[in-house]
Each structure stands twice: as structure tokens, then as C-alpha cells.
Amino acid sequence: MGEAIAFWVLATIIVLGALGVVTLRNLFHCALCLGLVLLSVAGIFILNGAEFLAGVQILIYVGATLVIILFAIMLSENITGERIQLASYNRTVGLVSALLFLALVTFLALTTQFPSHTSTIKDPVIAVLENVKTNTAAFGTLLLTKFIVPFEFASVFLLVALIGAIVIARTAE
């Protein structure tokens, strides 16, 4: 019951906030709406027992990504001297791609059999979950054993992006 109330409140905030992100005219207000959406998504993660994911969601998306977006908006407004307005072009293309994405997500959500404690699918995730105390520990164990290659690839990829950004910033000097 309490979970249901929490879910519906969070879901309403997410949908309204997401609408705000794409419909508000003032770009800074859009970014603040995005922050609200990201926080509420963290709430949904907590409702599903994924508290580690929720913490990382806030730390990375709200504490880092959103801050960079806000900085970018603030800096460009300072340079151009006028407030940036959100304008929508190519509405047809946008509508088509949005519908395609919706179809893809719906298709995946309906056809995937998600492993859980009750289902019969044997999954390495569940096997690890049964041996450790918290799902944070399961997360760490899986990342450094079964998914070590994608994990390392992501780190190297981020490092490349970081160095690339520094190189570009230096040549501009």
C-alpha cells in the first residue's frame, strides 16, 4: 500500500517533470526539471530494492551531469548575453523517433523474462545474490568477475574521452 502510493507519486512527478524538460521555454528551467526527474527515478530504484543504483544515480546524474549542463547554460548565456530559448524544429521527425523508441522499450519490456528470486531462470546474477549480504556487494562482485571486460572497457573509454577533452581545450588556447 505505502509502496503503491510512493510509486504513483514518483511516477507522476517523473512524467510531469519530463514534460517540463521538453516543453518549457527557458533552458535553465528545463535543466531544473531534469534534476527533479533524475531524483524521482532514484526514488523508483529504491522502491525496487536497488539502493546502490539510486545512490550512484544521484551522485553521477544529479551531482555531476546536471551540474555540467547548468554550467554550460550559464556560461553560454554569459557569452551571448541573452537567455537561451528552447525551440522545437523537425516536429514530425521527432514524433516518429519518439514513437519508435516507445515501441522498442515496450517490446523489450514485454518480451524479456526478468530473472528474480521467484522465477525459474538460472541467472548468474541470482547465484551471486544468494551468497552475499547486500546487493551492493553483489554489484561489486559481478562487476569485477563476470562483467570485468565491459567494466574495464568503460573505464578506458571514459579515460580516452577525458584526455580528448583536455587536448581539444588546450588547442583552443
Binding site: F28, L32, G35, L39, E51, F52, A54, G55, V56, I58, L59, V62, G63, A64, L66, V67, L70, F71, I73, M74, E77, T136
Partner: peptide, 22 residues
Amino acid sequence: IGVLYLVAITSITVIGIVTAGW
């Protein structure tokens, strides 16, 4: 996630500061 929670929550402060300035 005690410690992670503390680190994550305190990172929201920056949003407020940037908003105040802007």
C-alpha cells in the same frame, strides 16, 4: 548504502548554488 547516501545527497548542494547565482 550509508556512506554512498551521504556523498550522493551532499552533491545536490551545487545545483542550489548554481541556481542561486544564475
